[in-house]
Write a protein that binds this DNA or RNA. Sequence first.
DNA 1: GTCAAAACAGTTGTCTGACAACCAGACATA
DNA 2: TATGTCTGGTTGTCAGACAACTGTTTTGAC
Lengths: 247, 247
Amino acid sequence: MPDAAQFFDRIDRPARLPDGVASAIIDAIETRQLQPGDRLPTEMELARRFGVARTVVREAISLLRYDGIVQSRRGVGAFVADPAQKSTFRISPACFEKRKRIVQLLELRTGVQAGASALAAEMRTEAEMRDIRQTLAEVEAADRLGPAAALEQRVDSELLLYRRIAEASGNEYYVEVTRMIETTIQNNLRSAFLKNAANSEFGPQIMAEHHAVVDALIARDAEAARLATRSRFERAAHRLAARQDFL
Amino acid sequence: MPDAAQFFDRIDRPARLPDGVASAIIDAIETRQLQPGDRLPTEMELARRFGVARTVVREAISLLRYDGIVQSRRGVGAFVADPAQKSTFRISPACFEKRKRIVQLLELRTGVQAGASALAAEMRTEAEMRDIRQTLAEVEAADRLGPAAALEQRVDSELLLYRRIAEASGNEYYVEVTRMIETTIQNNLRSAFLKNAANSEFGPQIMAEHHAVVDALIARDAEAARLATRSRFERAAHRLAARQDFL
DNA sequence: GTCAAAACAGTTGTCTGACAACCAGACATA
DNA sequence: TATGTCTGGTTGTCAGACAACTGTTTTGAC
């Protein structure tokens, strides 16, 4: 049932207060107003300055502490930590506003996914191989329907294919990192991906790229898998970046 | 001034309440007691069950929300999110209790660092190359002092060498990921690293491994850099895992 | 009986005030 | 000098209240 409502995005509600406070503090740290080792103003003082309650400030600081950006000591205060102590890898949505950052993110994705493929070539079980071939068949089926048909389905089955491959590596960290990167990209660039898929990400050449990867996995050839995966994601990134409407 | 106090470690203070509550909830999610889409008990109810104040529960939930593990809607409740929505990569200290997990983490480190090296071979500037050679010289100097002397210094300069290389890639995500992985490893395995460095991580062979990497960077040979880095970290991981006292 | 508006109960988000635990430094004391 | 004590300040936790919001139920007009 076609519905005009699909064109209306959610209005951006005022974000949660603690998130705002947290990013304000992060901002102060990134702009060097607050340097490693410096003490943050007291929670009372911050609450006064931001015009919020202390509970809000506390929640904000607890987020930063969770990421290892600040350390707090009871009875003393909260201190900006050594940046090397950051214990989390997180991709901020703001990064998707700069073309350069997106290209770098796609580079990282290429490298990590290629590493996962290489491992998978060595570690895969027969059952996993069956799943992978099955998923590849789904990609192929969607591809045969033409560029515009089953668009989302095609993109999703492609994503699933490479997630399956990462899982076949048997390395949970690779699984987590690739999934986290993919999730972030999809959340922020989904529309560009779809447009791209409708224009250039289909047809025999693209299918040949996928096949090269899967064939290497079948042959248990780690180096070939790495190369094929690298080549596939490099080309995909290149095609995406070449689009006129890409940022 | 030798001081007996050096034998006294910090006593482990009781962790913060919100952290405990958060990991209890994460536990419930990982053991499938709470499945994606399920609603968490209300904050009141959780506070009652855990025997803490609601502010503590709120702080805990805000951490999970920050990682994309739960989503909360005012007036309704907090819900376990789709695991694919997790927006962070984080290595829990608990992972260092299982040998298998550590090996996997070292695998990831190898792959990512190799990717960074390959990029660095192409993107490095002359100034960065000078810094890298300078750092390599420091490693070499520390190495010449023998296995036991300047132990920490040698390990640290090695870490610095590969951090410099990652920075020379010009890709901030590679810098962040490698640094985050390295930080976590050092925070949890520092002592093993030091013991290992005193026993096997020194001498001409190890220096040759470093030189192979740097030479590839000088030659701007991406594939050689990838291979040399991979080889260096794979061997280091192997030597570490071969130790008797390693878990 | 139908349907929309209004009231309601329940939940999260924020605010306020209080007290406990803790710390650094000043001060007193031996 | 070394040790104990006090004091003000800070973070950690608690308790209670209200605001904002949601899903459901009730009410009332037709």
